[in-house]
Design a binder for these strands. Structure first.
Lengths: 225, 225
DNA sequence: ACAAAAGTGTTCGATATACACCCATGT
DNA sequence: ACATGGGTGTATATCGAACACTTTTGT
Protein backbone atom coordinates (compact mmCIF):
# COMPACT_ATOMS: atom_id res chain seq x y z
CA UNK A 1 0.00 0.00 0.00
CA UNK A 2 1.19 3.44 -0.79
CA UNK A 3 -0.05 5.15 2.31
CA UNK A 4 1.85 6.42 5.30
CA UNK A 5 2.33 4.03 8.16
CA UNK A 6 2.66 4.90 11.79
CA UNK A 7 3.88 3.37 14.97
CA UNK A 8 1.08 2.15 17.17
CA UNK A 9 1.36 1.73 20.90
CA UNK A 10 -0.93 0.75 23.70
CA UNK A 11 -0.75 2.71 26.92
CA UNK A 12 -2.41 1.39 30.03
CA UNK A 13 -3.69 3.39 32.94
CA UNK A 14 -3.52 0.91 35.79
CA UNK A 15 -5.59 1.82 38.81
CA UNK A 16 -5.34 0.29 42.23
CA UNK A 17 -6.33 1.16 45.78
CA UNK A 18 -3.73 1.66 48.50
CA UNK A 19 -4.88 2.47 51.94
CA UNK A 20 -6.96 5.55 51.45
CA UNK A 21 -6.11 6.67 47.95
CA UNK A 22 -6.68 5.74 44.37
CA UNK A 23 -3.34 5.02 42.77
CA UNK A 24 -1.98 4.78 39.25
CA UNK A 25 1.08 2.88 38.17
CA UNK A 26 3.68 5.08 36.53
CA UNK A 27 7.10 4.33 35.13
CA UNK A 28 10.09 6.56 34.92
CA UNK A 29 11.42 6.70 31.39
CA UNK A 30 14.89 5.28 30.96
CA UNK A 31 15.37 6.64 27.45
CA UNK A 32 14.76 9.75 25.43
CA UNK A 33 12.44 11.40 24.70
CA UNK A 34 11.29 12.64 28.08
CA UNK A 35 14.05 10.64 29.74
CA UNK A 36 13.62 10.70 33.48
CA UNK A 37 10.00 11.81 33.35
CA UNK A 38 7.14 9.74 34.65
CA UNK A 39 4.81 8.16 32.15
CA UNK A 40 1.93 5.75 31.80
CA UNK A 41 3.26 2.27 31.00
CA UNK A 42 2.82 1.05 27.47
CA UNK A 43 4.58 -0.26 24.44
CA UNK A 44 4.46 -1.03 20.78
CA UNK A 45 1.93 -3.37 19.29
CA UNK A 46 3.47 -6.47 17.73
CA UNK A 47 2.37 -7.35 14.27
CA UNK A 48 0.71 -10.61 15.21
CA UNK A 49 -1.24 -9.54 18.25
CA UNK A 50 -4.52 -7.72 18.68
CA UNK A 51 -4.69 -4.43 20.53
CA UNK A 52 -6.25 -6.04 23.57
CA UNK A 53 -3.59 -8.73 23.59
CA UNK A 54 -0.85 -6.13 23.42
CA UNK A 55 -2.44 -4.28 26.31
CA UNK A 56 -2.63 -7.44 28.35
CA UNK A 57 0.97 -8.29 27.59
CA UNK A 58 2.19 -4.87 28.65
CA UNK A 59 0.12 -5.12 31.79
CA UNK A 60 1.81 -8.39 32.71
CA UNK A 61 5.20 -6.89 32.10
CA UNK A 62 4.55 -4.14 34.60
CA UNK A 63 2.83 -5.99 37.38
CA UNK A 64 2.18 -9.62 38.19
CA UNK A 65 -1.50 -9.91 37.87
CA UNK A 66 -3.72 -12.69 36.68
CA UNK A 67 -7.17 -11.69 35.57
CA UNK A 68 -7.82 -8.01 35.56
CA UNK A 69 -10.47 -5.71 34.31
CA UNK A 70 -9.25 -4.15 31.08
CA UNK A 71 -11.16 -1.79 28.85
CA UNK A 72 -10.27 0.27 25.82
CA UNK A 73 -10.43 3.94 26.66
CA UNK A 74 -9.67 6.21 23.74
CA UNK A 75 -7.17 6.60 20.92
CA UNK A 76 -4.83 9.55 20.92
CA UNK A 77 -3.19 10.47 17.67
CA UNK A 78 -2.17 14.09 17.47
CA UNK A 79 0.60 14.39 14.88
CA UNK A 80 3.10 15.96 17.29
CA UNK A 81 2.36 14.05 20.46
CA UNK A 82 5.65 12.12 20.21
CA UNK A 83 8.77 13.98 19.06
CA UNK A 84 10.24 10.82 17.51
CA UNK A 85 7.63 10.70 14.79
CA UNK A 86 4.01 9.93 14.46
CA UNK A 87 2.86 7.56 17.15
CA UNK A 88 -0.74 6.66 17.65
CA UNK A 89 -1.61 5.26 21.02
CA UNK A 90 -4.63 3.25 21.94
CA UNK A 91 -5.17 3.89 25.63
CA UNK A 92 -6.63 1.25 27.93
CA UNK A 93 -7.51 1.35 31.55
CA UNK A 94 -7.13 -1.51 33.97
CA UNK A 95 -8.29 -2.16 37.49
CA UNK A 96 -6.07 -4.36 39.59
CA UNK A 97 -6.84 -5.90 42.83
CA UNK A 98 -4.08 -4.95 45.19
CA UNK A 99 -0.79 -3.22 45.49
CA UNK A 100 1.38 -5.71 43.74
CA UNK A 101 5.02 -4.80 43.65
CA UNK A 102 5.37 -3.11 40.29
CA UNK A 103 8.18 -4.25 38.04
CA UNK A 104 10.21 -1.87 36.02
CA UNK A 105 9.81 -2.99 32.42
CA UNK A 106 12.46 -2.92 29.74
CA UNK A 107 12.41 0.76 28.94
CA UNK A 108 11.66 1.93 32.44
CA UNK A 109 14.15 3.04 35.02
CA UNK A 110 11.71 2.62 37.82
CA UNK A 111 8.05 1.94 38.47
CA UNK A 112 5.89 3.26 41.27
CA UNK A 113 2.36 3.83 42.41
CA UNK A 114 1.20 7.40 42.61
CA UNK A 115 -1.91 8.72 44.22
CA UNK A 116 -4.10 10.39 41.63
CA UNK A 117 -4.21 13.36 43.96
CA UNK A 118 -0.45 13.88 43.87
CA UNK A 119 0.77 13.16 40.40
CA UNK A 120 4.19 14.15 39.11
CA UNK A 121 4.63 15.90 35.81
CA UNK A 122 4.00 13.42 33.02
CA UNK A 123 5.64 12.76 29.67
CA UNK A 124 3.95 13.24 26.29
CA UNK A 125 0.20 13.85 26.52
CA UNK A 126 -0.10 11.40 29.37
CA UNK A 127 -1.64 13.90 31.73
CA UNK A 128 -4.55 14.19 29.35
CA UNK A 129 -4.87 10.44 29.02
CA UNK A 130 -4.87 10.00 32.75
CA UNK A 131 -7.46 12.68 33.27
CA UNK A 132 -9.67 11.01 30.74
CA UNK A 133 -9.21 7.60 32.37
CA UNK A 134 -10.10 8.92 35.77
CA UNK A 135 -13.23 10.52 34.47
CA UNK A 136 -14.24 7.28 32.79
CA UNK A 137 -13.55 5.23 35.90
CA UNK A 138 -15.74 7.45 38.04
CA UNK A 139 -18.46 7.40 35.48
CA UNK A 140 -18.34 3.62 35.14
CA UNK A 141 -18.37 3.10 38.84
CA UNK A 142 -21.63 4.95 39.16
CA UNK A 143 -23.38 3.08 36.44
CA UNK A 144 -21.92 -0.38 36.64
CA UNK A 145 -20.39 -2.62 39.21
CA UNK A 146 -16.70 -2.47 38.35
CA UNK A 147 -15.83 -1.51 41.90
CA UNK A 148 -15.17 -5.13 42.79
CA UNK A 149 -12.29 -5.27 40.41
CA UNK A 150 -10.29 -3.12 42.76
CA UNK A 151 -10.70 -5.56 45.66
CA UNK A 152 -9.49 -9.07 46.38
CA UNK A 153 -11.82 -11.97 45.68
CA UNK A 154 -13.41 -11.82 49.07
CA UNK A 155 -14.18 -8.58 50.77
CA UNK A 156 -16.37 -7.04 53.39
CA UNK A 157 -19.12 -4.60 52.60
CA UNK A 158 -17.26 -1.90 54.45
CA UNK A 159 -14.20 -2.45 52.30
CA UNK A 160 -16.34 -2.23 49.20
CA UNK A 161 -17.99 0.95 50.40
CA UNK A 162 -14.62 2.46 51.19
CA UNK A 163 -13.41 1.62 47.70
CA UNK A 164 -16.38 3.42 46.19
CA UNK A 165 -15.87 6.39 48.45
CA UNK A 166 -12.20 6.69 47.57
CA UNK A 167 -12.82 6.59 43.85
CA UNK A 168 -15.87 8.81 43.84
CA UNK A 169 -14.40 11.19 46.36
CA UNK A 170 -17.53 11.42 48.46
CA UNK A 171 -18.96 9.64 51.43
CA UNK A 172 -21.90 7.29 51.06
CA UNK A 173 -24.61 6.28 53.47
CA UNK A 174 -23.86 2.86 54.91
CA UNK A 175 -27.40 1.51 55.00
CA UNK A 176 -28.31 2.76 51.57
CA UNK A 177 -25.08 1.45 50.12
CA UNK A 178 -25.60 -2.03 51.49
CA UNK A 179 -29.23 -2.19 50.50
CA UNK A 180 -28.50 -1.19 46.93
CA UNK A 181 -25.69 -3.62 46.38
CA UNK A 182 -27.52 -6.49 48.01
CA UNK A 183 -30.69 -5.80 46.02
CA UNK A 184 -28.72 -5.53 42.80
CA UNK A 185 -28.07 -9.24 43.17
CA UNK A 186 -24.42 -9.08 42.26
CA UNK A 187 -23.04 -10.18 45.61
CA UNK A 188 -22.72 -13.69 46.96
CA UNK A 189 -22.29 -14.03 50.68
CA UNK A 190 -19.79 -16.53 51.94
CA UNK A 191 -19.98 -18.14 55.36
CA UNK A 192 -16.63 -16.68 56.32
CA UNK A 193 -16.01 -13.79 58.62
CA UNK A 194 -13.03 -11.61 59.10
CA UNK A 195 -12.08 -10.29 62.50
CA UNK A 196 -12.22 -6.57 62.96
CA UNK A 197 -9.50 -4.95 60.94
CA UNK A 198 -8.07 -2.60 63.54
CA UNK A 199 -6.05 -4.91 65.79
CA UNK A 200 -8.85 -7.42 65.81
CA UNK A 201 -11.14 -5.08 67.63
CA UNK A 202 -14.78 -4.85 66.69
CA UNK A 203 -17.33 -7.28 65.39
CA UNK A 204 -16.10 -9.57 62.59
CA UNK A 205 -17.46 -8.71 59.17
CA UNK A 206 -19.00 -11.15 56.76
CA UNK A 207 -17.06 -11.75 53.58
CA UNK A 208 -18.70 -11.49 50.20
CA UNK A 209 -17.73 -12.47 46.73
CA UNK A 210 -19.17 -11.05 43.54
CA UNK A 211 -20.84 -12.95 40.78
CA UNK A 212 -18.81 -13.34 37.65
CA UNK A 213 -20.35 -11.37 34.79
CA UNK A 214 -21.92 -9.09 37.31
CA UNK A 215 -20.40 -6.11 35.59
CA UNK A 216 -22.34 -6.67 32.43
CA UNK A 217 -25.49 -7.67 34.24
CA UNK A 218 -25.81 -4.37 36.00
CA UNK A 219 -25.05 -2.30 32.95
CA UNK A 220 -27.51 0.46 32.24
CA UNK A 221 -28.90 0.26 35.69
CA UNK A 222 -27.59 3.11 37.65
CA UNK A 223 -26.11 2.08 40.92
CA UNK A 224 -25.68 5.41 42.63
CA UNK A 225 -28.00 7.95 41.15
CA UNK B 1 12.39 3.59 15.34
CA UNK B 2 12.83 -0.10 14.89
CA UNK B 3 9.26 -1.10 15.51
CA UNK B 4 6.62 -2.25 13.08
CA UNK B 5 4.42 0.40 11.55
CA UNK B 6 0.88 0.01 10.43
CA UNK B 7 -1.60 1.73 8.22
CA UNK B 8 -4.14 3.73 10.16
CA UNK B 9 -7.57 4.60 8.85
CA UNK B 10 -10.59 6.37 10.17
CA UNK B 11 -14.00 4.88 9.43
CA UNK B 12 -17.12 6.91 10.03
CA UNK B 13 -20.55 5.59 10.77
CA UNK B 14 -22.79 8.38 9.53
CA UNK B 15 -26.33 8.29 10.86
CA UNK B 16 -29.25 10.21 9.52
CA UNK B 17 -33.03 10.04 9.67
CA UNK B 18 -35.10 9.47 6.56
CA UNK B 19 -38.83 9.37 6.86
CA UNK B 20 -39.40 6.68 9.42
CA UNK B 21 -36.07 4.96 9.66
CA UNK B 22 -32.60 5.46 11.00
CA UNK B 23 -30.17 5.31 8.11
CA UNK B 24 -26.44 4.81 7.69
CA UNK B 25 -24.36 5.97 4.79
CA UNK B 26 -22.57 3.12 3.04
CA UNK B 27 -20.30 3.05 0.02
CA UNK B 28 -19.79 0.31 -2.46
CA UNK B 29 -16.14 -0.56 -2.78
CA UNK B 30 -14.65 0.14 -6.20
CA UNK B 31 -11.42 -1.75 -5.55
CA UNK B 32 -10.19 -4.97 -4.02
CA UNK B 33 -10.34 -6.25 -1.37
CA UNK B 34 -14.05 -6.79 -0.99
CA UNK B 35 -14.63 -5.10 -4.33
CA UNK B 36 -18.33 -4.55 -4.90
CA UNK B 37 -19.25 -5.02 -1.26
CA UNK B 38 -20.80 -2.31 0.86
CA UNK B 39 -18.67 -0.70 3.52
CA UNK B 40 -18.57 2.12 6.01
CA UNK B 41 -16.88 5.15 4.48
CA UNK B 42 -13.38 5.91 5.64
CA UNK B 43 -9.85 6.45 4.56
CA UNK B 44 -6.21 6.71 5.51
CA UNK B 45 -4.97 9.24 7.99
CA UNK B 46 -2.56 11.76 6.51
CA UNK B 47 0.65 12.33 8.34
CA UNK B 48 -0.04 15.94 9.23
CA UNK B 49 -3.60 15.68 10.43
CA UNK B 50 -5.11 14.55 13.71
CA UNK B 51 -7.50 11.64 13.85
CA UNK B 52 -10.49 13.91 14.32
CA UNK B 53 -9.40 16.06 11.40
CA UNK B 54 -9.06 13.01 9.21
CA UNK B 55 -12.53 11.91 10.21
CA UNK B 56 -13.97 15.31 9.43
CA UNK B 57 -12.24 15.39 6.08
CA UNK B 58 -13.59 11.98 5.12
CA UNK B 59 -17.02 13.03 6.24
CA UNK B 60 -16.93 16.04 3.95
CA UNK B 61 -15.80 13.89 1.07
CA UNK B 62 -18.85 11.69 1.42
CA UNK B 63 -21.57 14.17 2.10
CA UNK B 64 -21.83 17.93 2.02
CA UNK B 65 -22.34 18.87 5.58
CA UNK B 66 -21.24 21.77 7.62
CA UNK B 67 -21.15 21.28 11.34
CA UNK B 68 -21.96 17.81 12.48
CA UNK B 69 -21.79 15.85 15.64
CA UNK B 70 -18.70 13.67 15.53
CA UNK B 71 -17.46 11.39 18.25
CA UNK B 72 -14.72 8.80 18.47
CA UNK B 73 -16.23 5.38 18.91
CA UNK B 74 -13.67 2.63 19.25
CA UNK B 75 -10.45 1.42 17.67
CA UNK B 76 -10.44 -1.88 15.84
CA UNK B 77 -7.11 -3.54 15.25
CA UNK B 78 -7.34 -7.28 14.84
CA UNK B 79 -4.25 -8.42 12.92
CA UNK B 80 -6.25 -10.07 10.12
CA UNK B 81 -9.11 -7.63 9.73
CA UNK B 82 -7.77 -6.38 6.39
CA UNK B 83 -6.29 -8.91 3.97
CA UNK B 84 -3.88 -6.33 2.53
CA UNK B 85 -1.88 -6.12 5.71
CA UNK B 86 -2.26 -4.75 9.14
CA UNK B 87 -4.67 -1.86 9.20
CA UNK B 88 -5.83 -0.27 12.39
CA UNK B 89 -9.01 1.73 12.14
CA UNK B 90 -10.23 4.36 14.51
CA UNK B 91 -14.00 4.35 14.15
CA UNK B 92 -16.06 7.49 14.59
CA UNK B 93 -19.74 8.07 14.51
CA UNK B 94 -21.45 11.12 13.11
CA UNK B 95 -24.97 12.46 13.24
CA UNK B 96 -26.06 14.51 10.27
CA UNK B 97 -29.06 16.60 9.96
CA UNK B 98 -30.81 15.48 6.85
CA UNK B 99 -30.58 13.23 3.87
CA UNK B 100 -27.99 15.07 1.89
CA UNK B 101 -27.25 13.52 -1.44
CA UNK B 102 -24.28 11.33 -0.70
CA UNK B 103 -21.27 11.61 -2.96
CA UNK B 104 -19.29 8.65 -4.06
CA UNK B 105 -15.74 9.34 -2.91
CA UNK B 106 -12.59 8.38 -4.71
CA UNK B 107 -12.49 4.70 -3.95
CA UNK B 108 -16.25 4.19 -3.97
CA UNK B 109 -18.33 3.00 -6.88
CA UNK B 110 -21.49 4.25 -5.31
CA UNK B 111 -22.84 5.67 -2.08
CA UNK B 112 -26.27 5.17 -0.57
CA UNK B 113 -28.28 5.41 2.60
CA UNK B 114 -29.38 2.15 4.13
CA UNK B 115 -31.89 1.65 6.90
CA UNK B 116 -30.21 0.07 9.88
CA UNK B 117 -33.00 -2.49 9.79
CA UNK B 118 -32.13 -3.68 6.30
CA UNK B 119 -28.42 -3.69 5.93
CA UNK B 120 -26.55 -5.45 3.15
CA UNK B 121 -23.60 -7.69 3.80
CA UNK B 122 -20.65 -5.53 4.80
CA UNK B 123 -16.95 -5.67 4.01
CA UNK B 124 -14.19 -6.32 6.57
CA UNK B 125 -15.40 -6.19 10.18
CA UNK B 126 -17.75 -3.35 9.38
CA UNK B 127 -20.84 -5.18 10.59
CA UNK B 128 -19.28 -5.28 14.03
CA UNK B 129 -18.36 -1.61 13.89
CA UNK B 130 -21.85 -0.66 12.86
CA UNK B 131 -23.43 -2.73 15.58
CA UNK B 132 -21.23 -1.06 18.11
CA UNK B 133 -22.05 2.39 16.76
CA UNK B 134 -25.76 1.75 16.93
CA UNK B 135 -25.53 0.57 20.49
CA UNK B 136 -23.56 3.67 21.42
CA UNK B 137 -25.99 5.99 19.68
CA UNK B 138 -28.96 4.52 21.56
CA UNK B 139 -27.11 4.70 24.81
CA UNK B 140 -26.08 8.29 24.24
CA UNK B 141 -29.54 9.32 23.26
CA UNK B 142 -30.89 8.16 26.56
CA UNK B 143 -28.34 9.91 28.65
CA UNK B 144 -27.57 13.04 26.73
CA UNK B 145 -29.28 15.31 24.30
CA UNK B 146 -27.64 14.37 21.02
CA UNK B 147 -31.03 13.77 19.42
CA UNK B 148 -31.09 17.30 18.06
CA UNK B 149 -28.12 16.60 15.88
CA UNK B 150 -30.31 14.50 13.66
CA UNK B 151 -32.73 17.35 13.00
CA UNK B 152 -32.50 20.67 11.20
CA UNK B 153 -31.84 23.82 13.21
CA UNK B 154 -35.49 24.41 13.88
CA UNK B 155 -37.87 21.62 14.62
CA UNK B 156 -41.18 20.89 16.26
CA UNK B 157 -41.48 18.88 19.42
CA UNK B 158 -43.33 16.19 17.54
CA UNK B 159 -40.46 15.88 15.09
CA UNK B 160 -38.02 15.59 17.94
CA UNK B 161 -40.11 12.96 19.64
CA UNK B 162 -40.38 11.01 16.40
CA UNK B 163 -36.60 11.13 16.03
CA UNK B 164 -36.16 9.66 19.49
CA UNK B 165 -38.74 7.01 18.82
CA UNK B 166 -37.09 5.95 15.59
CA UNK B 167 -33.67 5.63 17.11
CA UNK B 168 -34.75 4.00 20.32
CA UNK B 169 -37.26 1.76 18.60
CA UNK B 170 -40.03 2.39 21.08
CA UNK B 171 -42.88 4.82 21.46
CA UNK B 172 -42.77 7.54 24.05
CA UNK B 173 -45.50 9.34 25.92
CA UNK B 174 -46.10 12.76 24.40
CA UNK B 175 -46.75 14.68 27.58
CA UNK B 176 -43.88 13.14 29.49
CA UNK B 177 -41.54 13.66 26.58
CA UNK B 178 -42.37 17.33 26.25
CA UNK B 179 -42.20 17.99 29.94
CA UNK B 180 -38.81 16.36 30.30
CA UNK B 181 -37.21 18.19 27.43
CA UNK B 182 -38.67 21.53 28.36
CA UNK B 183 -37.62 21.15 31.99
CA UNK B 184 -34.14 20.09 30.97
CA UNK B 185 -33.68 23.65 29.77
CA UNK B 186 -32.00 22.72 26.53
CA UNK B 187 -34.69 24.02 24.20
CA UNK B 188 -35.27 27.57 23.09
CA UNK B 189 -38.66 28.36 21.69
CA UNK B 190 -38.87 30.53 18.62
CA UNK B 191 -41.87 32.61 17.72
CA UNK B 192 -42.30 30.74 14.49
CA UNK B 193 -44.90 28.15 13.70
CA UNK B 194 -45.07 25.54 11.02
CA UNK B 195 -48.32 24.58 9.39
CA UNK B 196 -49.46 21.00 9.90
CA UNK B 197 -47.17 18.70 8.04
CA UNK B 198 -49.75 16.52 6.31
CA UNK B 199 -51.04 18.79 3.52
CA UNK B 200 -51.23 21.69 5.90
CA UNK B 201 -53.94 20.07 7.93
CA UNK B 202 -53.92 20.34 11.68
CA UNK B 203 -52.85 22.97 14.13
CA UNK B 204 -49.49 24.59 13.37
CA UNK B 205 -46.67 23.54 15.66
CA UNK B 206 -44.27 25.84 17.39
CA UNK B 207 -40.67 25.63 16.26
CA UNK B 208 -37.85 25.17 18.70
CA UNK B 209 -34.12 25.47 18.53
CA UNK B 210 -31.65 23.89 20.92
CA UNK B 211 -29.06 25.65 22.94
CA UNK B 212 -25.54 25.24 21.73
CA UNK B 213 -23.50 23.16 24.17
CA UNK B 214 -26.68 21.57 25.34
CA UNK B 215 -25.20 18.16 24.76
CA UNK B 216 -22.55 18.62 27.36
CA UNK B 217 -24.84 20.41 29.76
CA UNK B 218 -27.17 17.49 30.10
CA UNK B 219 -24.42 14.95 30.48
CA UNK B 220 -24.83 12.59 33.35
CA UNK B 221 -28.44 13.48 33.74
CA UNK B 222 -30.50 10.73 32.37
CA UNK B 223 -33.11 11.94 29.98
CA UNK B 224 -35.20 8.82 29.60
CA UNK B 225 -34.74 6.54 32.53
C1' DA C 1 -68.76 20.48 10.81
C1' DC C 2 -65.12 17.53 10.65
C1' DA C 3 -60.56 15.84 10.18
C1' DA C 4 -55.88 16.32 11.69
C1' DA C 5 -52.24 17.36 14.53
C1' DA C 6 -50.76 20.37 18.69
C1' DG C 7 -50.90 21.23 23.19
C1' DT C 8 -51.76 20.67 28.23
C1' DG C 9 -52.16 18.43 34.29
C1' DT C 10 -52.93 15.17 37.64
C1' DT C 11 -52.76 10.98 40.19
C1' DC C 12 -50.22 6.99 41.71
C1' DG C 13 -46.51 4.08 42.47
C1' DA C 14 -41.53 3.45 42.79
C1' DT C 15 -37.29 4.81 44.15
C1' DA C 16 -33.83 7.77 46.50
C1' DT C 17 -32.61 10.06 50.69
C1' DA C 18 -32.01 11.02 55.38
C1' DC C 19 -31.42 9.38 59.70
C1' DA C 20 -29.86 6.47 64.93
C1' DC C 21 -29.49 2.58 67.46
C1' DC C 22 -28.21 -2.30 68.76
C1' DC C 23 -24.80 -6.26 68.00
C1' DA C 24 -20.55 -9.04 68.26
C1' DT C 25 -16.00 -9.22 69.35
C1' DG C 26 -11.19 -8.20 71.76
C1' DT C 27 -8.91 -6.07 75.51
C1' DA D 1 -17.10 -2.55 81.04
C1' DC D 2 -15.68 -0.28 77.22
C1' DA D 3 -13.95 0.57 72.76
C1' DT D 4 -14.30 -0.69 67.98
C1' DG D 5 -16.35 -1.60 63.88
C1' DG D 6 -20.57 -4.43 61.87
C1' DG D 7 -25.12 -4.65 60.98
C1' DT D 8 -30.10 -3.24 60.59
C1' DG D 9 -35.42 -0.37 59.32
C1' DT D 10 -38.52 3.46 58.56
C1' DA D 11 -40.52 7.81 57.23
C1' DT D 12 -40.44 11.45 53.66
C1' DA D 13 -39.47 13.53 49.39
C1' DT D 14 -38.66 13.14 44.63
C1' DC D 15 -39.18 11.37 40.29
C1' DG D 16 -41.08 8.47 36.66
C1' DA D 17 -45.30 6.29 34.52
C1' DA D 18 -49.76 6.17 33.08
C1' DC D 19 -53.50 8.39 31.27
C1' DA D 20 -57.71 11.78 27.97
C1' DC D 21 -59.41 15.88 26.62
C1' DT D 22 -59.27 20.73 24.53
C1' DT D 23 -57.28 23.86 20.93
C1' DT D 24 -56.11 25.46 16.44
C1' DT D 25 -56.01 25.11 11.83
C1' DG D 26 -57.44 23.67 6.73
C1' DT D 27 -60.95 21.72 3.91
Amino acid sequence: MEFAKYSVTVDIVIFSLHQTALNVLLIRRAAAPHKGKWAIPGGFVNSNESLATAARRELKEETDVGEVYLEQLYTFGEPKRDPRGRVITVAYFALVTRALAPRAGTDAAEAAWYSVNALPELAFDHAEILKYALQRLRYKLEYTAVGFELLPNEFTLTELQTAYEIVLGETLDKRNFRRRLLEAGILVETSKFRPGSDEGRGRPAQLYRYKKNAVTEVKARRLFP
